[in-house]
Amino acid sequence: MAEKGALAEAPPVAVAKKPARPWDPRLLLEREEVLGYLLMLPALGLLTTFVVYPFLYGIWLSLTDSRIGVPGGFVGLKNFIELTRDSIFQQTFRNTFLYTGVTTVFKLAFGLAVAVLLNNTFPLKRFVRAAVLLPWIVPTVLSALAWLWMFDSTFSVINWMLARFGIKGPVWLGTNPWPMISLMAVNIWRGTPFYAISFLAGMQVINQELYEAAAIDGASRWQMFRHITLPTLRPVIIIVVLLSVILTFSDFQLIYVLTRGGPANSTHLFATLAYQVGLPSGEIGLGAAISLFIFPALCLTVFLTLWYMRRQELD
C-alpha cells in the first residue's frame, strides 16, 4: 500500500478515512465502525430473532387469552390479576423465593468450605478437583433421574441406609414438607461444585505471602479466612452468586424430573408452572404471564451485576 509511511505514525483509522474512493468496499472494510458492525451483524441477527423478538412476543402473549393453536384476543392484565388470586400460583411464588434463598445460602457456605478444603495440598489433588465438578457437568435431568431412584418410595437406598440406624425414612417425594426439602438438597448437590471450583480459581491468585505474614503475626486459620481470603474473593463471590441466583430462580429440570410440581401442585417453581399451564394445558397466554414473573428477578440481577462491574472498573 502507498500509505505505508503515514500508517506507521498515525492510528490506522486516520488513514482509512481519507481514501480517494470512500465507497470502495475494500477500503470500507478498513474503517473500524464499518467492519465492527459487519462482524457483529450475524450475532445480533440471531439474538434479535430468537431472544429479543420472542421476549417482546411473550409480553404480548401474556396480555392475551391465547391457547395453543387458537390466537387469542387482548385481555389487558386479566392473566396477572387472575394469577395473584390463584392459590397454586401463590404457593409457586413462595416456593420460588424459598427455593432460591435457601439453596443459595447453602451453596455459598458449602462452596466456600469445599474451596478452602481443596486449596490444601494432598495426594491426588488434581483428580479430586476434577471429580468435584462432575455433578455440575453432567446433564441435570440425567443425574436427577439417579436421585429419583434414590428417593423411590419403596426401594430408596437412602431409607435403606437410615433403616440400618433404626430410622424409618420418609416418602421423600410424597409427603410434605419432604418434597421441597429433597428438591433443595439436590439443587445444592448440583450447584455447590460450581461455587467451589470458581472460588478455588479465585483463591489461587491470592498471594501466599499474605498468609505467611499473618501466620507470623499469630493469626488463627479463621482470622486468615475472614481477613485475607474473603475480601480478595469478594468479586468472584458476588458474580457467582448473581449468576447462580438467576439460574436457580428460573430452574426447571430438577422439578420436572423429581416431582413435576407435585404432590398436588405444591412444589412448582415459576418455570414448571408456566410449562404445565402453557403447554400440556394449552393456555399459552396464561403460561407466558407466569414465565414473565422471572423477569423482575432477572432485571434485578442484571442491574446489580452491571452496577458492581462498573464500580470495579472505576476502582
Binding site: 473500524e32 465502525e33 467492519l35 465492527g36 458492525y37 462482524l39 457483529m40 450475532a43 445480533l44 439474538l47 430468537f50 431472544v51 420472542p54 421476549f55 412476543y57 411473550g58 402473549l61 449468576l243 438467576i246 439460574l247 430462580f249 428460573s250 430452574d251 426447571f252 415459576f270 418455570a271 408456566a274 410449562y275 402453557g278 403447554l279 399459552i284 403460561g287 407466558a288 414465565s291 414473565l292 422471572i294 423477569f295 432477572l298 440481577t301 442484571v302 451485576t305 452491571l306
Partner: peptide, 28 residues
C-alpha cells in the same frame, strides 16, 4: 474496535447471556 453504540451492544450481549431459557420457551 471503537464504534458508536459498541459499548452498549457489548452490555446488550451480556444481558442476553443472563436471560434464562425458561423465560422464553413459550413464545419461542
Amino acid at each position: 474496535f471503537r464504534f458508536p453504540g459498541g459499548t452498549l451492544l457489548g452490555w446488550g450481549i451480556f444481558v442476553t447471556y443472563l436471560v434464562p431459557q425458561t423465560l422464553l420457551f413459550l413464545p419461542l
